[in-house]
């Protein structure tokens, strides 16, 4: 399959390893992966800020960049939700337009589209999983990441059991309302630490950045890691 790799801004700037892991895994599964270098942002930050005309300009651009691929895959539930759930409203597209149905979040692409759950990875650690809100509630992806994690050899999976509730990131929200966002994040981190896990896995770099920022600030031993990076192992 001819797959276009969509690497959201946060992955590009802070977590490039997660992007590389996605490419590595897809190639290993025998697909052709291309990274269109002219890609930038899907427009979500402006959309969430209410500035829709600026968001629409980038959304149109995004479709131009990725339209030629059979499938577009991104290591982010949030950015895929932007395309799948909000582009129709933003650009007046049909909700099942052929472009939108070709854009996938990484874990749902593996499990639902490629029917792959076991990537042959090994990870000898206790791990918990944070459901990012957009992946869970916009894309309704809940089981897929868990299936992938449970197939990893040596991995001791433990549920977070905190709702699931938001980590307090919320994009601009974490900047506009830092106190509220921090308290939400602190409760999340406390729940993570209660599991005794060594790693907290998520499928969105916004959450990982927020949770990670709180973990390092309190000198926690728990490390945040993107699902793709955990599954992709060392190059």
């Amino acid at each position: 399959m001819q797959i276009g790799l969509f690497i959201p801004c946060l992955v590009d700037q802070f977590f490039p390893q997660a992007g590389l892991a996605v490419a590595r895994i897809l190639k290993r599964l025998g697909h052709s992966v291309e990274y269109p270098a002219e890609q930038t942002c899907c427009g979500q930050p402006a959309f969430n800020a209410g500035v829709r005309s600026e968001a629409a300009a980038l959304a149109k651009r995004f479709i131009q960049v990725f339209d030629r691929f059979e499938a577009v895959v991104a290591p982010s539930g949030s950015c895929v939700a932007m395309v799948r759930n909000f582009y129709p409203e933003l650009l007046d597209l049909a909700p099942h337009s052929s472009f939108i149905t070709r854009v996938f979040e990484f874990s749902e692409f593996l499990v639902d589209r490629l029917n792959v759950t076991d990537l042959g990875a090994t990870f000898n650690e206790r791990v918990t999983y944070h459901d990012s809100c957009h992946l869970l509630r916009e894309l309704r992806v809940r089981e897929q990441p868990r299936q992938l994690l449970r197939a990893v050899k040596g991995l001791d999976f433990v549920e977070l059991n905190d709702g699931p509730t938001c980590c307090g990131f919320g994009g601009v929200f974490s900047v506009k309302f830092p106190e509220v966002s921090t308290v939400m994040g602190e409760d999340k981190v406390a729940a993570i630490e209660r599991t005794g896990a060594r790693y907290v896995v998520a499928s969105d770099c916004g959450c990982l950045m927020h949770i990670g920022g709180l973990l390092t600030r309190r000198d926690s031993k728990v490390r945040p890691i993107h699902l793709a990076e955990l599954l992709g192992g060392a190059p």
Binding site: D12, V175, P178, G213
Partner: peptide
């Protein structure tokens, strides 16, 4: 943001550069 939370360091190279 950083009064209560650390920001992760920018990656040495962006994904774009690495690719």
């Amino acid at each position: 943001w950083t009064e209560t939370r650390d920001l992760p360091p920018l990656a040495r190279k962006s994904f774009h550069e690495m690719w």
